[in-house]
Every structure is written in C-alpha cells, then in structure tokens.
Simulated scan of single mutants.
Amino acid sequence: MHIVIGLIIAFVIVAIFARRNRATRNCRWRADHTGDRGALKKYRCAACGATGFSATGGPPRDCKSQLPKV
C-alpha cells in the first residue's frame, strides 16, 4: 500500500514539473553576450531564432516564437 501511495505522489510531482516547463519545451536558449544591456542578458533560441532578454540570470521562461509578429 505504501508503494502505491509513493507512486501516486511521484506521478503528481512529475506532472507539476512537466507543466511548468511547457512554454519553453521547444526552445533551446543560448547566451549571446554581444547584445547584453547592463543587467539584462541576451539569449537567442537555437531552434526558432527568437531573441529574448532576461534579468534573472537564466534563460527566458517563455517561447518568443509563439508571440504574434508586430
């Protein structure tokens, strides 16, 4: 019985983390330090070519290629 409860808890945790990264699943962000703007770090997606900036120290959390073109 303890094994079944443990498996259910593990499944729920994996499902939560899988949903959390859904927006960037297809993007592979690479740092591009030539375009940094002070505290903002520039990143370029190797998959779709989108560029984005982040001040969190890591790559952007969302995919920029799905945004409408202006």
Rank of each mutant, 00 (worst) to 15 (best):
H2W: 10
H2G: 14
L7V: 15
L7E: 10
I8S: 06
I9N: 06
A10D: 10
A10Y: 08
A10M: 12
V12C: 13
V14E: 04
I16S: 03
F17D: 10
F17V: 12
F17T: 13
A18P: 01
A18W: 10
A18Y: 08
A18N: 11
R19I: 15
R20M: 09
A23R: 13
A23P: 06
T24A: 05
R25P: 07
R25V: 11
N26W: 07
N26R: 11
W29I: 03
W29M: 06
W29E: 02
R30D: 07
R30T: 14
A31Y: 05
H33Y: 06
G35D: 07
R37D: 13
K41F: 02
K41D: 02
K42N: 09
K42C: 09
K42T: 03
Y43D: 01
Y43A: 05
R44C: 05
A46G: 06
G49S: 07
G49R: 00
A50K: 03
T51P: 01
T56M: 04
G58N: 12
P60C: 08
R61V: 04
R61Q: 11
R61Y: 07
D62P: 03
D62L: 06
K64F: 08
K64L: 02
K64C: 06
S65L: 00
S65H: 07
Q66C: 01
L67Q: 11
L67A: 11
L67N: 12
P68Q: 05
K69P: 04
